[in-house]
């Protein structure tokens, strides 16, 4: 079973629609039990980090996330879903995140318009199955004001320039996460979800 985590916000429908179009069944769920048993887990993200962290905790999902990441269940986090995995964020005057990955979330620098909204290139900086069949420097859709600054232990597999060169895709074991929204990025984004699901569900 593919689980899409429902924490009361987030663009769940778009992620579910993308997975359905690719020919997989997914279940939108807020049950920790479902998530722990899933073959693959998506953590979508639209929202504010503080609100997302408190919603996840209120649903008892923080421990479930910790467990699936520890046992290497294939896991895909998007946008704020990526950010809340880190230790802390500058958003909202500073707040603690889930601390499942080492590193911090910072505000995009002054001098460019923030939020960063629109289609921007992603440079694939390290070979990874997520980018199979996707041209380097392809355009993906971004909409965010903060970016992650991972510490050691997380592979940076994609970067993007906007005000600075920031991390736009990461991998660690079976966990992958993107700052951009594959479910909003047309053919390239659908291909990225397909790559993830192929390796997660079919093992290739």
């Amino acid at each position: 079973m593919i689980a899409i985590i429902d924490y009361g916000a987030g663009n769940l429908r778009s992620v579910a629609n993308a997975i359905a179009l690719l020919g997989y069944d997914a279940k939108i769920t807020s049950s920790p039990d479902d998530i722990v048993k899933a073959d693959a887990v998506f953590l979508p993200g639209v929202g504010a980090a503080a609100d997302t962290v408190s919603s996840l905790k209120a649903h008892g999902l923080d421990d479930a996330l910790k467990e699936v990441i520890a046992r290497e269940t294939p896991f895909f986090a998007v946008c704020v879903g990526l950010q809340v995995l880190f230790e802390e964020t500058e958003e909202g005057g500073g707040c603690q995140c889930l601390g499942l990955l080492p590193g911090k979330v910072r505000k995009l620098p002054a001098g460019v318009k923030v939020p960063h909204i629109g289609w921007n290139n992603v440079k694939n900086t390290r070979a990874h199955t997520l980018f199979n069949g996707i041209d380097d420097d392809s355009f993906f859709y971004f909409v965010h004001s903060y970016y992650v600054e991972p510490d050691l232990g997380t592979e940076v597999i994609g970067t993007t320039d906007y005000g600075l060169n920031f991390t736009s895709a990461i991998a660690r074991g079976n966990l992958v996460a993107t700052q951009f929204h594959p479910e909003k990025s047309g053919a390239a984004g659908l291909k990225m979800y397909d790559n993830f699901l192929k390796s997660a569900i079919r093992g290739n």
């Binding site: 916000a9 663009n11 639209v46 504010a48 909204i117």
Partner: peptide, 27 residues
Amino acid sequence: DKVAINTAAVARPELITEGAIKFGSQC
């Protein structure tokens, strides 16, 4: 992905802040 507010924001600008806190400014 995003909602546009017009008349309601003029009538009560706090709606902008409340929406941004709940869903993020980018929404």
